[in-house]
């Protein structure tokens, strides 16, 4: 599904290398988790994959189902099936949440040569999905993320993911800022989307989320590299002992 090879990334503006050779493959139907100390490059990886400006790929490649991601515009990556749930969802005053969702959904459909969803069908679908995430009608009408609480913003990200039905979902600290109940809702939202054709890359600091979204593979990222890969037990090890042992072991 997602194949990242030897990815090196530096900042465009400064001479600062952030990713120093990331190798990572997420197979269809699998959930991979990435953990790692603050500043290790997890968000950078997710931004580079989704096409944000400001980064320069100096070496390596990233492919989605065999197609080179790095050459595509962000909207093309989205239409190809990539989705990033932002660590910090963006507020867009003046653009209604519904308009935003519908514009996005129909733009992707159009790019794939599919028919646009009718207003009625869209409404039905968005209402049903919002309900399972406990997002009320009022929040759907408000401008995108404006005045949303931290947890509401994160749930809104999952709603977008549920509506857009991407093939490859990257969740960047979707659990941060969520209360225990909201975490369950979000996990249920994610689990509902798990299927054989879809891959997940879940960035998190805490085992808690992984109790609900059971990962197949856990990676540890440090200083711009994946330094260790293992099963779910790796996350437990981090939870119990922090990163010190793992870092020492590698060095």
């Amino acid at each position: 599904m997602l194949e990242i090879k030897n990815l090196h990334v530096k900042l465009e503006e400064e001479d600062k290398q952030i990713l120093k050779g990331v190798d990572l493959t997420v197979e269809a139907g699998k959930v991979h988790a990435i953990m790692g100390p603050n500043g290790s490059g997890k968000s950078t990886l997710s931004y580079v994959l989704s096409g944000r400006d400001g980064y320069e790929v100096t070496e390596g490649s990233a492919q989605l189902e065999g197609v080179d991601l790095l050459e595509m515009e962000p909207e093309e990556r989205a239409a190809a099936g990539l989705f990033l749930a932002f660590q910090y969802p963006v507020e867009i005053p003046g653009v209604g949440n519904m308009t935003f969702l519908r514009t996005a959904l129909n733009a992707q459909r159009k790019a794939r040569g599919e028919e646009e969803l009718s207003a009625a069908d869209f409404l039905k679908e968005v209402r049903a999905k919002a309900k399972t995430l406990k997002i009320d009608a009022d929040m759907l009408k408000r401008p995108v993320n404006v005045g949303f609480s931290g947890g509401e913003k994160k749930r809104n990200e999952i709603l977008q993911m549920a509506m857009l039905e991407p093939k490859m979902c990257i969740l960047d600290e979707t659990d941060s800022g969520l209360d225990v109940d909201a975490m369950k809702l979000v996990a249920e939202g994610v689990n509902a989307l798990r299927d054989a054709g879809r891959g997940f890359l879940v960035i998190t600091h805490y085992q808690r989320l992984l109790d609900h979204i059971k990962p197949d593979v856990v990676h540890i990222m440090a200083d711009g590299r994946i330094i260790k890969t293992g099963g779910p037990e790796l996350a437990l090890e981090v939870e119990n002992n922090g990163y010190a042992d793992i870092l020492a072991e590698v060095n």
């Binding site: 989704s50 096409g51 944000r52 400006d53 515009e73 962000p74 909207e75 990556r77 989205a78 239409a79 989705f83 990033l84 932002f86 969802p89 963006v90 507020e91 867009i92 653009v95 308009t99 935003f100 514009t103 996005a104 959904l105 733009a107 992707q108 790019a111 977008q160 857009l164």
Partner: peptide, 18 residues
């Protein structure tokens, strides 16, 4: 905001207009 819209599949021109 522009990147957020584009990351959801809205093309640059459409996102700018929005």
């Amino acid at each position: 905001a522009l990147f957020y819209l584009r990351s959801r599949g809205v093309p640059l021109k459409e996102a700018t207009d929005l």
